[in-house]
Write a protein that binds this DNA or RNA. Structure first.
Length: 895
RNA sequence: GGGUUCAUAGCUCAGCUGGUUCAGAGCACCUGCCUUACAAGCAGGGGGUCCAAGGUUCGAAUCCUUGUGGACCCA
């Protein structure tokens, strides 16, 4: 017997093969005009990142696609790389400096960047190393980084180009300010969460006109207007109070002024239908500097803008009171001060949606600020069209609608970030404040000299914009930039690999990233960046919670790989992850994956213990077994191709899983398994069967390879001596043959045979008989021919001492019916029990026949249904009738 | 509030343009087995009013309407 371990040990093989593939340069790709290119660019993970379960899923899928394409003889190229992730990385570096006792504000930009690069060099490659453990077959020689010189140059070029084409502008706008990260956020980086808050009802004093006597006449002492606000700390920035012109309660206030509490500012009462009369008191305080809607109202009514907050979220000088106090503390202090002045009418509990920074989780502050924007309306047109017409296909397609609604309602994209780590905006300011956009300082100086007619200007007169670009701006260029397609638009790589084929990413960044790549693709290559976008789901825990560090519910992928093997984890991830659906991850899935590798391993152990003998013995059923499996495998290959074509990777895996486990191991190998020859002696098998089996095994390994690269490479070499470049990673992928009649015939014969085997096994089970106890099977049929081929197989699998045909019913025997034929096994039986069993089956079949007859008896059905459907009903009827007849006869035999 | 999307077995999901014995798969569960490849295994089995109510149709898990409940996007 073999010396191989009973269980597969992935640790012994994974690193070995990965190193071998690298050594043989199997992942490397060069443009090859004789081959069709197949390209994927990796969604660049953050340099700060370590591998998480989302990456595992995402990159496993990419690797599957790439490996299959490579085996299909395509020039497969998977470009890896990382993303500089401005906010996240800067936060990490600031944190690191803090631990060293260095504050960011105490060092220069250059010093800071030096630390940042050091940090990047040290930690930035971790995630890529982890991907290697997973088996990712990236062309590592092509690894790129969004902030490396070559890529930065491309980013700057695009910025300047867009600016000069008029697509980029600078403007004062209400932006989302993250006071913790001290940066502006795009709308997409704000997460709205339902938050418990309070609604304060505050009295504002209406200013009385100085008309003498009037006051006395009307008897009015002092009039107050009550407003409701969630943010009392912004009161000091109020520059109006607004009511609805249709609101009867306030009509008399037209033209009056009101006094803002605490700061005693006199502001107008304005009228606008924007105000919801039913909310709060129907009176709205207007703070243009701190609310987007108020800002718009302010624009419309020409209100003063008073910004009462500093960048760090503390109150500014303009607030006059509580200057320097943090905003939430200020809220309490203001409320208290108002209370003391008797101006608080009441306070209500209130639930509202509040925006949080995706990066720092700080409450986002609406703020007026000068930022850089990309004008989106002109650029989005081709990006929308080509997704809607399926030129770029989204998988699953349900995301098309979401994509459209976003693209149709797109707002200008705020691309500046108040950070140091990133691509610094190539804009320079002259002493007089004029702006020059250029590729570098030298060019800027030249332009400045020209525009000012001042040749005396020096580089020291120019001050570069402090801001950097949104990270998505550079990652939007990724599919072009990794091939240097912006600086050398006609280079060989970009011409060969672009457009790429597939992109695998998460739906949550469909807009952040995917849309922007598409938009840039059309702007700079007049071509889509890829043909298919496969959207994976979010990996969640068993309870459906998103995996997160704070919850601590995410397993460490590397530990999982150590525990179950990369192949086991890869398949585990895919067992339950249809495209676009969230994956509820359970470690059990990896266990199932590991068990599968073990199953394959043991199938190999079985086969490798065999020895070929020359034999003249007549066919033992092996010929049938081989033909049957050949047909089954072909069938599976056809389905497999369909699944791949539709990006149903999970279904593709399941097809292979069942083919290997059920058809190959449970049926085929059991059919051909030779007799045990005794301790230490190899089992003997005929040459044809052995050869066919090895070839089946090879094909199975090939179709398994994209899912389980390591074990398949190991067994590929264990199965046969191979040359040093004859690896499964580059072996030819099996193609299905055109399905022909012989295949269908043997599969249906096999189905009957298996039915018989199952019936006999069930009989043994229900009667508590040992599988070792041999029995005799009698078949009563009109068409003996259909059993000819499978007779020896049925005998072997059901452990029968003999199979005979009979023309008579056999009384006192166990009997069953398959497809209208009767089967008898002489046994001591309980007649009543058997009758009951058969009567139950008869009842079901009669009911079924009745429903079929009803259908066929319905004139409208016969008139309207398609011919093949009617034909099918007739066949069902005939089958049911034959079965009923046989069951009735069986009952007669049991009298 | 507007939009998109989903609801099928205990769990995760298939089920394509209505029609195969259509009610499925995997896992889980139950029963019996350490049967010389595999107990990380083998053999067998039981699970569902296809969210609800209407409608279209000869025929509905599938199409339409309404409702309920969830998810996501946008405000």
């Amino acid at each position: 017997m073999s010396s191989l371990a009973k269980t597969y040990n992935p640790r012994e093989v994974e690193d070995k093969w990965y190193a071998y593939w690298l050594e043989k340069k199997f992942f490397a790709s060069k443009p090859n005009p004789n081959k069709e290119p197949y390209t994927i660019v990796i969604p660049p993970p953050n340099v700060t990142g370590v591998l998480h379960m989302g990456h595992m899923l995402n990159n496993t899928i990419q690797d599957i696609l790439v490996r299959k394409a490579r085996m299909e003889g395509k020039e497969a190229c998977w470009v890896p790389g990382t993303d500089h992730a401005s906010i996240a990385t800067e936060a990490k570096v600031v944190q690191m400096l803090k631990e060293k006792g260095i504050e960011k504000k105490d060092i220069t930009r250059e010093e800071f960047l030096k630390y940042a690069w050091e940090w990047k060099e040290k930690y930035g490659g971790i995630i890529l190393e982890q991907l290697k453990k997973l088996g990712a077959s990236c062309d590592w020689d092509r690894t790129r980084f969004t902030m490396e010189d070559a890529l930065s140059e491309q980013v700057i070029k695009v910025f300047v180009d867009l600016y000069r084409k008029g697509h980029i502008y600078r403007g004062a706008r209400m932006i989302n300010w993250d006071p913790q990260g001290k940066t502006a956020l795009s709308d997409d980086e704000v997460i709205y969460k339902e938050t418990k808050s309070k609604l304060y009802y505050v009295k504002y004093k209406v200013k009385q006109e100085n008309l003498s006597g009037l006051q006395h006449l009307t008897g009015l002492e002092e009039e107050y207007l009550t407003i409701a606000t969630q943010r009392p700390e912004t009161i000091m920035g109020d520059t109006a109070v607004c009511v609805n012109p249709n609101d009867e309660r306030y009509k008399h206030l037209k033209g009056k002024k009101i006094i803002v509490p605490l700061v005693n500012r006199e502001v107008p009462i304005i009228f606008d239908e924007y105000v919801d009369m039913t909310f709060g008191t129907g009176a709205l305080k207007v703070t243009p500097a701190h609310d987007i809607n108020d800002y718009n109202l302010g624009l419309k009514h020409n209100l003063e803008v008073i910004d009462t907050l500093n960048d760090d979220g503390t109150l500014s000088e303009a607030a006059q009171v509580f200057v320097g106090t943090e905003r939430f503390k200020a809220r309490k202090l203001v409320a208290k001060a108002l209370e003391e002045q008797g101006l608080i009418v009441k306070v209500e509990e209130y639930t509202t949606n509040i925006g949080y920074s995706e990066r720092t989780d700080a409450v986002v502050e609406p703020k007026i600020s000068t930022q850089w924007f990309v004008k989106m309306t002109d650029l989005t047109k081709p990006a929308l069209e080509n997704v809607m017409n399926d030129n770029i296909k989204l998988h699953p397609s349900k995301f098309k609608n979401m994509y459209r609604s976003w693209m149709e309602n797109v707002r200008d994209w705020c691309i500046s970030r108040q950070l140091w780590w990133g691509h610094r905006i190539p804009a320079w300011y002259l002493p007089d404040g004029t702006l020059v956009v250029a590729h570098n300082a030298e060019e800027a100086l030249e332009l400045a000299k020209q525009s000012t007619n001042n040749s005396e200007l020096t580089i020291n007169d120019l001050v570069q914009d402090e801001d950097v670009l949104d990270t998505w701006f550079s990652s939007g260029l990724w599919p072009i930039a990794v091939f240097d397609g912006l600086l050398n638009p006609d280079n060989e790589d970009i011409k060969y690999y672009y457009p790429t084929n597939d992109l695998v990413t998460a739906p949550e960044i469909l807009f952040f990233w995917v849309a922007r790549m598409i938009l840039f693709g059309y702007e700079y290559r007049q071509e889509k960046p890829y043909s298919n976008v496969y959207l994976t789901g979010i990996v969640r825990d068993k309870q459906g919670r998103k995996m997160s560090k704070s919850l601590g519910n995410s397993p460490d992928p590397i530990e999982l790989i150590e525990k179950y093997g990369a192949d086991g984890v890869r398949t585990g991830m895919l067992f339950s992850s249809p495209a676009g659906n969230d994956l509820l991850f359970d470690e059990k899935l990896c266990e199932q994956g590991r068990n599968f590798t073990n199953k394959i391993w043991n199938a190999f152990r079985l086969v490798q213990g065999w020895q070929v003998v020359e034999t003249d013995e007549e066919d033992t059923g092996n010929t049938t077994a081989v033909k049957w499996f050949e047909a089954r495998m072909n069938d599976a290959l056809i389905h497999l191709e369909e699944h791949y074509a539709n990006y149903r990777i999970s279904d593709a895996l399941m097809t292979v899983y069942k083919l290997v486990w059920d058809d190959f191991c449970s049926w085929y190998l059991e059919m051909i398994k030779p007799e045990y020859q005794g301790e230490g002696k190899p089992s003997l098998i005929d040459k044809n069967t052995y050869g066919a089996t090895i070839s089946f095994f090879e094909n199975l390994l090939k179709i398994l390879h994209p899912f389980m690269p390591f074990i398949t490479e190991e067994l590929w070499h264990a199965l046969k001596e191979r040359g040093e470049n004859e690896c499964i990673i580059v072996a030819e992928y099996p193609q299905p043959k055109k399905q022909y009649v012989a295949f269908e015939k043997i599969i249906s014969e096999g189905e009957i045979a298996f039915d018989i085997v199952r019936q006999i096994r069930e009989m043994r089970n229900s009667k508590g008989m040992s599988p070792k106890e041999e029995v005799i099977l009698y078949i009563k049929t009109h068409s003996k021919a259909i059993y000819n081929r499978f007779k020896p197989i049925i005998r072997k699998l059901a452990n029968l001492s003999a199979i005979s045909f009979t023309s008579q019913n056999m009384p006192k025997s166990f009997n069953f019916v398959v497809k209208g034929d009767e089967f008898f096994i002489p046994l001591k039986i309980n007649v009543a029990e058997e009758r009951a069993r058969i009567e139950k089956e008869l009842e079901y079949n009669e009911g079924f026949l009745e429903s079929v007859n009803k259908k066929l008896g319905n004139e409208k059905f016969v008139q309207n249904a398609k011919p093949e459907i009617i034909e099918n009903e007739r066949k069902k009827k005939a089958d049911a009738e034959a079965k009923i007849k046989a069951l009735k006869k069986a009952l007669e035999g049991l009298r």
